[in-house]
């Protein structure tokens, strides 16, 4: 099977790995690169558990070809904490009991990060819109919405 070398930036560090022909970004990140942060939930682009940021914008990694990130900047939940310091979203999810099983959390956090990066003080409706493609079966969403709003607040007042 043909393998293609893919060079890209993952959470700030340059990485190179071989992708199988037709391999999607989710499998490439997990099996090829060893970043287990993004999760498989459906493989159909309908649950959001695999959400990563590519050049700052949220993407469903299960629907994206691995080779499409060549030369681009990929961010996953694994890089959210920097230099030992948690991201305000991570702190807010912990304080707000915004995760139960934790399986949707990596994708949820990345969708929220994309929002806060471009809109530091979103309204509740904008938060709802931003996580509209990310399913959670445990929480009923309310704690997640509150946590994202709290993180925005925390960043603004920090």
């Amino acid at each position: 099977m043909a393998k293609k070398p893919v060079t890209f930036t993952l959470n700030g560090a340059e990485r190179a790995a071989f992708a199988d022909d037709g391999e999607n970004l989710l499998q490439f990140l997990r099996r090829g690169v060893g970043d287990l942060g993004p999760k498989y939930g459906c493989g159909q682009g309908s649950c959001g558990a695999c959400t990563v940021l590519v050049d700052g914008a949220p993407h469903l990694s299960c629907l994206m070809l691995a080779e499409a990130v060549a030369g681009r900047r990929v961010e996953t939940v694994s890089g959210l904490a920097r230099d030992g310091a948690l991201h305000p979203l991570q702190e807010a999810f912990m304080d707000g009991f915004a995760a139960q099983c934790g399986y949707c959390t990596p994708g949820m956090l990345m969708a929220a990060k994309a929002l806060l990066d471009r809109n530091p003080r979103p309204s509740r409706d904008e938060v709802v819109e931003a996580i509209g493609g990310n399913l959670c079966r445990c929480t009923g969403y309310a704690p997640i919405i509150e946590a994202i709003l709290a993180a925005a607040e925390r960043r603004a007042t920090a």
């Binding site: 287990l36 942060g37 993004p38 999760k39 996953t76 939940v77 694994s78 959210l80 904490a81 948690l86 979203l89 991570q90 999810f93 912990m94 304080d95 009991f97 995760a99 934790g102 399986y103 959390t105 990596p106 956090l109």
Partner: peptide, 15 residues
């Protein structure tokens, strides 16, 4: 706080 919450928010909980 949940014992497992740090793992959940850092994507390191071992499923």
């Amino acid at each position: 706080r949940r014992q497992d919450i740090l793992g959940h928010v850092t994507g390191r909980s071992p499923f």
